[in-house]
Each structure stands twice: as structure tokens, then as C-alpha cells.
Amino acid sequence: MNEIKGGSLTVAGIGSGKFSQITGEVLEALKICDCIAGYEVYINLVKDHFPGKEFLSTPMRKEEERCRLALEKASQGKNVVFICSGDAGVYGMSGLIYEVSKEFPGVQINVLPGITAALSGSALLGAPLIHDFAVISLSDLMTPWEKIAKRLEYASAADLCIVLYNPMSHKRKDYLLKACQILLKNLPEDRPCGYVRNIGREGEECKILTLKELSTAELDMFTTVFIGNESTKVLETANGKKLVTPRGYQFEKSALDDK
């Protein structure tokens, strides 16, 4: 076991990386900490705002090493904030931090929420997640594709709105197509969908399209995809087309009127 001198580790989501979308709670934690740890890309998003801080980072695929470095620093009595994109508990690092922390008994761990892409992307598209929805990652680095395929099939059969994270990468160019082919077994080709790329960053792009059109879209791992349910529609508004899933208030009113 590592010697513990007292310290804390806060795992915090920083949202899309747009500084104005970092919550006040996370911002305060970053201001008062001794050290900021995280994936090097996320460190670069906040580094200029916190001069004088110590920074710990590792490249991609070094997640466990990154967690251990942060916990070691905390075990030395430092106040460490470990940053993740979006929310630390949605495809983030809070789970792995807790697992690795068994080697560092005595380090206090706190988790602060951030704005995950399902929420920030939904706001840009309109209001597609007003009703029940499922969030599914198409990355098979840690989940077998067979299990991902089953989740897609069941979520579409249940008529859930669906949010897809990591829809495509250089090594997974056909995964979005494969996912859409599974969804099309239960959903019509004209089902309203949308995607948002580079949320809150340079090159932000937002588009509404059909499920058939989505199947041939050229996207990347910085894109979040939204598939509507049977009630989802495209509305014309003063600031363009918006993807909206009704909650059903009109039905509640009708039911009251009938009483």
C-alpha cells in the first residue's frame, strides 16, 4: 500500500471544453487546487486559464497510468483535480479512479458533474431528449460489438430516443452505417435525426437529417448523434429548424378536459 499523507482528488467534468460551459462548482475546484490532471487534450483546453498550477497528463490509451499519477499526487497531500470532457461519470474516468483508489486508502475522492454531450448537443439541436432516451457508445474498445448491436436493437424496439457517442473513427469507418442498419430494422427511413460536431469548439456543426441520410454521413469521434422516437418532429422556428420530441402535455390536457 502507498503511504498516505492526506490529500484529495476531485474528478470533474469540464463539458465540451468551452470555458463558459464549465460549471461554477468545477471552476472553483480548479481555482483552489494544487494540481490539475487529465488527458493531454483536455489539459490544453484549460491550461491557459490557470497559470502557476502543476499539470499531470498522459496520452490516449494511458488511462490507468493517468489515474495512478493523480492518486499518487493526492497521496502526497496535494489537492488534485482530475478533469474529463463532458461529465466524469458518463464515459468518463470517475469509475476507473475509484477502482485504482484501492491502492491509495485514505485519499478522499469527490466527483463533480459536468455537461455531457447528450445535453449540450441536444440544446443545439432543439429539444430531442424531452422524453425517455438511451445513450449508447459505438466504440468497441471496451464493449464487444455484439453487445452494442443488441443494445441498439432493443433501444430502437422500445421506441427510445437514442444518443450515439463515438459514432465513427479512422479504424471504425463503417460502424455508424452498421448501427443505422440495425436501427432500420425497427425504425422508418424518414425517422428524424440530428448530429452535432465539435460541440462548443472551433468548427461546431449542427445538422438535422433522416435516419437514411444519417447512415451515409461522414462523421467522427467528436460527433454526437441523436435519433428521435416516433413522436420526434422537425419544427420551423425563428432561428431555423429544430429537432423536438413532445413530452405529451397536449394528451394530459385532453385527459383533464374529458373528466
Rank of each mutant, 00 (worst) to 15 (best):
Val26Tyr: 00
Val234Gln: 09
Cys206Thr: 15
Met168Cys: 13
Gly24Ser: 07
Leu119Trp: 08
Gly15Asp: 06
Asp48Met: 01
Asp258Asn: 05
Ser16Gly: 04
Gly106Gln: 09
Lys207Met: 10
Glu25Phe: 00
Asn229Trp: 02
Ala149Val: 05
Asn229Gly: 03
Phe226Thr: 04
Trp145Cys: 02
Lys150Asp: 07
Cys161His: 09
Ala179Val: 05
Leu141Lys: 10
Ser85Cys: 10
Asp220Trp: 01
Lys173Ile: 11
Thr10Tyr: 06
Asp48Thr: 05
Tyr175Gln: 13
Asn186Ser: 15
Val234Pro: 08
Thr237Ser: 14
Phe82Cys: 10
Lys233Val: 12
Val11Gly: 07
Ala74Cys: 03
Val163Lys: 11
Asp140Trp: 00
Ser120Phe: 05
Ala149Arg: 15
Lys207Pro: 06
Leu138Cys: 09
Glu236Ile: 10
Tyr91Leu: 10
Ser156Val: 14
Ile199Arg: 01
Gly6Ile: 11
Gly95Leu: 08
Asp140Arg: 00
Leu219Ile: 07
Thr210Ile: 08
Ala134Met: 05
Pro246Val: 08
Gly7Ala: 14
Gly200Lys: 12
Lys73Ala: 15
Asn79Ala: 07
Thr116Phe: 10
Ala238His: 05
Ile130Ala: 15
Asp34His: 14
Leu256Phe: 06
Ile148Glu: 04
Ala118Ile: 08
Cys84Leu: 07
Thr245Asp: 06
Gly248Ile: 03
Lys102Asn: 13
Leu119Asn: 11
Asp140Pro: 01
Phe82Met: 15
Asn79Thr: 09
Val107Ser: 10
Asn79Ser: 14
Thr143Ile: 14
Glu202Cys: 04
Ser20Glu: 15
Lys233Cys: 13
Val26Pro: 03
Ile115Asp: 09
Pro192Ala: 03
Pro128Met: 08
Gly77Pro: 05
Leu69Trp: 01
Met168Val: 14
Ile32Glu: 12
Pro144Asn: 06
Tyr98Val: 12
Ala127Cys: 14
Leu187Cys: 13
Tyr39Cys: 02
Ala217Leu: 02
Leu69Asn: 05
Gly126Cys: 14
Ile148His: 06
Gly106Ser: 11
Gly203Met: 09
Pro113Thr: 09
Lys185Met: 07
Gly248Met: 03
Ala117Gln: 05
Ile83His: 12
Met93Cys: 09
Pro246Phe: 06
Asp159Thr: 13
Gly52Ile: 03
Tyr39Trp: 12
Trp145Met: 04
Lys242Gly: 01
Lys233Gly: 10
Arg66Ala: 04
Tyr98Phe: 12
His170Glu: 11
Cys206Asn: 15
Leu112Ser: 12
Arg61Thr: 03
Ser20Phe: 00
Phe226His: 02
Val46Ser: 01
Thr216Glu: 14
Asp132Met: 09
Lys150Glu: 13
Leu27Gly: 11
Lys102Tyr: 10
Thr223Lys: 02
Asp34Val: 04
Glu153Phe: 13
Asp87Ser: 11
Ile36Met: 04
Ala217Val: 02
Ala179Trp: 04
Lys241Glu: 12
Leu129Ala: 12
Leu214Thr: 07
